[in-house]
Amino acid sequence: MKLKIKLPLLFLLMLLILMFSIGIYLKFIFAVYSPIRTTLLDSRYIALLLPIFAIAGCIFFILIIYIYRSIEKPIRRLNTRLGEVNVVHPLPPLASRSNDEIGELYKHFNKMEHRLQLAHREQTDMIAAIAHDLKTPLTSINGFTELLATHKDLPDTEKQEYYELIQKKSAYMVELLNDFSRFTKETLELESMVTTRVKATELFADIAFEYEYELAGLDIELTCRHSFTDSIGLTVNEPMIRRVFGNLFSNAVRYGGKPDLKVYMTGYLREHHAYFQIEDNGIGVPDKDLSSLFLKFFTVDKSRQIQKGGLGLGLASCKSIIEHHGGEIMAFPSEYGGLGIRFSLPLASLH
């Protein structure tokens, strides 16, 4: 039975029971205080009950109108909208002025529809990005192989150059596919992430020790400082957090764009979170692109991406990992002239 039928019938039944009880009550009153004994169909009783029935009828009508406008109509509208969900051509969000459960339902529906639209957009962008990034090296490989096939009298040195270019383009394609495969695998791993408690000081020291020597081998100076104490603990999946640091240092080295590149790592405490910052003195990123750095497949400069490699998933991976830990990550212009990335991790519970 539909809600718009069941609820009015329920209220009608309640009102009939109420009226019958009033009638019995009046009969009892008249039986006690009047010598005249008669039935409820007596005109005197009916006249006494008519105003009560009129009031009850008005109440019933008001209830019907209220249920229709506040419950049945919004639910019917939501049900209609569910059949019209379109992620390609989105409709305006559902509006509701009520703050009850129906209003909350509308808000949750709007959020769900927005997430579906974002998922569709990301899927489309993913396919377009992969197709674009694979098309460029494939076109080059096709051109080189066609040239080798049609010009068999080329000098051996020139043939060798073309073979090496084909190998380089093939390696670039393999790297792109590996990046995408790694990102997909990482997304699945986050759903079953296991965390342990680590000291912020130990984590910072381990990361600093690891990358200080690695960057020194590339003639890049790493400066580290923090204000953590041994009592500060973090509940994290350490391999994934190390992956975040690895991506950030790799980006700084790959896209720093300076021969005398310097990298700075800072750690500090603020309220209930531990903050980590990775900065460099490189060429930086335009302010208009800072908010887009963590989008999947986003790259500031396509030509630089082709030269340096990568699919534009490194920072998107960092964002996903940090948010699964309950933290936040953001980009900002560094005081050293390059790019700065700051992320937070919630402190571990004392118990």
Rank of each mutant, 00 (worst) to 15 (best):
E84R: 15
E238R: 12
G233Q: 07
I141L: 08
Y275F: 15
A348I: 06
P93A: 02
E161W: 07
L293N: 00
L40E: 07
I55Q: 08
D287N: 15
K152W: 05
E210G: 03
I141P: 06
E122L: 04
V253A: 05
R37V: 02
T39C: 03
L293H: 00
I5K: 13
F11N: 07
F11A: 09
N86A: 12
A348E: 12
I322R: 01
Y68I: 09
H226K: 08
D280L: 08
E210N: 14
S96A: 09
A200E: 03
P92I: 11
L78G: 08
P8M: 02
P51L: 03
K111M: 08
I46S: 00
I17L: 11
P239K: 06
A129R: 05
Y213G: 11
H114S: 11
R304P: 00
L118Q: 14
E271M: 10
I22H: 01
L315T: 03
L9F: 07
A316E: 01
H272M: 05
S34K: 06
G326A: 12
D179Q: 12
A171V: 05
Q307W: 03
P74T: 05
E84Y: 09
I341K: 01
T80W: 12
M19Y: 10
M1L: 13
E175W: 07
G257K: 01
L339V: 11
A119S: 06
Y66E: 07
P239D: 04
A208G: 06
L147R: 14
E72V: 09
I65K: 08
E122F: 06
T145S: 15
G256S: 09
G284S: 07
N142S: 15
M330P: 00
A56D: 09
L7F: 12
E214W: 14
V263E: 01
L295H: 00
V285N: 03
G83N: 14
R77N: 11
Y264W: 09
K288H: 10
T229S: 15
D260A: 12
F20G: 14
S334F: 04
M193K: 14
K4Y: 10
L78S: 06
F276M: 08
P92C: 13
P346E: 08
M112S: 10
G217M: 13
Y336R: 15
G327Q: 02
A47V: 02
G103E: 06
A252W: 01
E191Y: 12
E161V: 12
I36H: 04
L48V: 12
F28M: 14
G326E: 10
P74E: 07
C58A: 10
